[in-house]
Amino acid sequence: MNNQILSARLTLTKVALPDWDLIRSIYSNPTLMEHIGATMSDEDIRRNFEKELAPWSLESNHWLTWIIRETDSGSDVGLISICTRNRETLTAEVGFIILEGFKGKGYATEAIRRVFDFAVDTFGFKKFTAVCSEEHAASRRVLEKAGMKLDKIVPESTEIAGKMVNDCFYSLEK
């Protein structure tokens, strides 16, 4: 599998050992995790990070994660991941986190579209899903710009920071 995916402005590189500090900074940042869940301990982050370093296939239960970087500057923009959700229907879930200084530039939409194309071409995925909290308007806009459709809103589905939030379930068939 190719460890790098290129788009017009971005280079997506499969997560690797040197990315530890970035991954740790993302999952321990309360602002970045505000709409995702609780910040994680170093131990939990390390456990997930080590899973994501492992080889990935359709049968894997862990996320396939890429670091998103600006091609021109090499600056870290965030991360994007996919995980197989249904092997029979070739369905993958996508998730992403964009660092504060890079939001609003269309990077998340560009990365998602490119990952969808890569996942279809490389693994044969036919459907993609995503979940985000109803109040996270920016993520909802990104998913919709990437071509995903809102399937349903489930009230009080997930607890984030001690509060139950409504989850929006999106999908896209390729």
Rank of each mutant, 00 (worst) to 15 (best):
S7R: 11
R9I: 05
R9H: 09
L12G: 11
L12T: 03
T13R: 13
V15A: 07
P18C: 00
W20G: 01
L22K: 07
L22A: 03
I23W: 06
R24W: 10
T31W: 11
E34S: 14
M40E: 15
E43W: 03
R46M: 11
R46K: 14
N48A: 06
F49P: 07
E50W: 00
L53A: 07
W56R: 08
W56Q: 05
W56T: 02
S57D: 12
S57Q: 04
E59W: 12
E59V: 03
W63T: 15
W63E: 15
W63R: 13
L64V: 08
W66L: 13
I67S: 03
T71D: 07
D72N: 04
S75E: 15
D76H: 14
L79V: 04
I82Y: 02
R85T: 13
R87W: 08
T89R: 09
L90F: 12
T91K: 06
A92M: 11
A92F: 05
E93Q: 09
E93G: 14
G95D: 10
I97L: 07
L99S: 01
L99N: 11
K103V: 13
G104V: 04
K105Q: 14
E110F: 09
A111E: 03
A111M: 03
I112G: 03
F118G: 01
F118N: 04
A119S: 15
V120C: 07
F123L: 05
V131N: 03
C132D: 02
S133I: 12
E134C: 10
E135L: 00
H136A: 05
A137L: 04
L143W: 04
E144H: 00
K145H: 01
A146I: 02
M148S: 02
L150Q: 14
K152I: 13
K152F: 08
I153M: 04
V154S: 14
V154D: 11
V154M: 12
S157E: 14
A161K: 13
G162L: 06
M164T: 14
M164R: 12
D167Q: 10
C168L: 06
Y170E: 00
L172P: 04
E173M: 13
